[in-house]
């Protein structure tokens, strides 16, 4: 009788759910997408969806509560015929140029100051961040009191020091003063971002470079010009890029202080888009206003990132 080989099957214990899970989570191909997906979902829902909706609205005659149809770039062309829009366009460049320019100069100055050996250094650095941390709408309400035509503490101080004639400027009621006021508040709010980011760049500059420059006879201005500034260019480029985008899309400060007035002299794209798109219900035109500078800003972003990359490598 032939005896065949008998295979012995041993029952292997089925891995528990927990161990299977931990095995899956050990694989990078699973773990990566799991970590990224919540952020991706948020981006899709809160950034991509509204953005593509806005793109569609800008080329349609969308009005709240009515069916809309595609009208091409008619909104963009028609906007240019509006005096309020042309004024807004000009305001945006004046506002952004003045505010970002002042923030660059003052930001570098403040960062250099904070980089010195100061008493209570940590406390001062924390305090500098306050305007950036406080909710803008609240801090701007404080500024609106300071610029109030009757109770302005700015005018009170100016009158007390004898540098203003009574009753002092009507900060929010006259167009050039109003633009000055919104620019000042934007600088006040954005300066900490510049100062703290540039400070991080300053701290990263090796001390040896300054010592070598000093040994070669370079004074403080030469050291700043030939050591500090070239090594800060990368950080400065990124900060200016972010600030330009944030400043062009500013809303809170103008809305709380002036609502875009007087005579549209402080309207920016965001505030005008709100007025036309939400208050009036012309969503299509509102979206076109907010996206008007999108192509130009894309080019600025591309050029600036290229510049930053060149600096880095």
């Amino acid at each position: 009788m032939a005896i065949g080989s008998v295979g012995v099957v041993t029952a292997r214990a089925r891995p528990s759910l927990r161990s299977r899970m931990s095995e899956l989570l050990d694989r990078e191909s699973w773990l990566g997408p799991i970590f990224v997906s919540p952020a991706l979902v948020l981006l899709l829902l809160l950034v991509a969806y509204p953005f593509f909706m806005a793109l569609y609205f800008s080329v349609s005659n969308a009005f709240i509560g009515r069916p809309s149809s595609f009208i091409g770039i008619r909104n963009f062309v028609r906007l240019w015929e509006s005096d309020a829009f042309r004024q807004t366009f000009q305001n945006a460049f004046v506002f952004c140029g003045a505010a970002v320019g002042a923030k660059v100069v003052l930001g570098i100055a403040l960062a250099l100051l904070l980089n010195q050996q100061l008493w209570f250094k940590r406390m001062i650095r924390g305090a500098v961040l306050l305007p950036w941390v406080i909710p803008t709408a609240l801090s701007t309400l404080g500024w609106s009191w300071m610029f109030n035509s009757l109770y302005s503490v700015v005018n009170w101080t100016g009158l007390a020091l004898g540098i203003m004639d009574p009753p002092g400027p009507n900060w929010l009621g006259q167009k050039y003063y109003a633009m000055t006021a919104v620019v000042v508040v934007n600088i006040w709010r954005g300066l900490p971002f510049f100062a703290i980011t540039l400070l991080a760049g300053l701290v990263a500059i090796p001390k040896e470079l300054y010592e070598a420059a000093e040994a070669d006879g370079a004074g403080p201005i030469a050291r700043f010009w030939y050591v500090t500034l070239p090594l800060l260019k990368g950080v400065l480029g990124i900060v200016v890029l972010f600030s330009t985008i944030f400043t062009f899309s500013e809303f809170n400060i103008v809305y709380v202080l002036t609502h875009g007035g007087p005579m549209n002299s402080t309207h920016l794209f965001a505030t005008l888009a709100r007025q036309v798109g939400l208050e009036t219900g012309r969503i299509g035109e509102g979206a076109a206003i907010s996206l008007y500078l999108f192509p130009a800003l894309m080019i600025v972003v591309w050029a600036q990132l290229r510049f930053v990359r060149k600096q880095a490598y």
Binding site: G261, N264, Q275, V276, T280, G281, R282
Partner: peptide, 22 residues
């Protein structure tokens, strides 16, 4: 209409007066 609403919300009449006195 929405056009009338845009005229109102754009403050064209108040701006006209403001222009006239400035």
């Amino acid at each position: 209409s929405d056009k009338v609403q845009l005229i109102t919300n754009s403050f064209i009449l108040p701006i006209m007066l403001a222009k006239a006195v400035t």
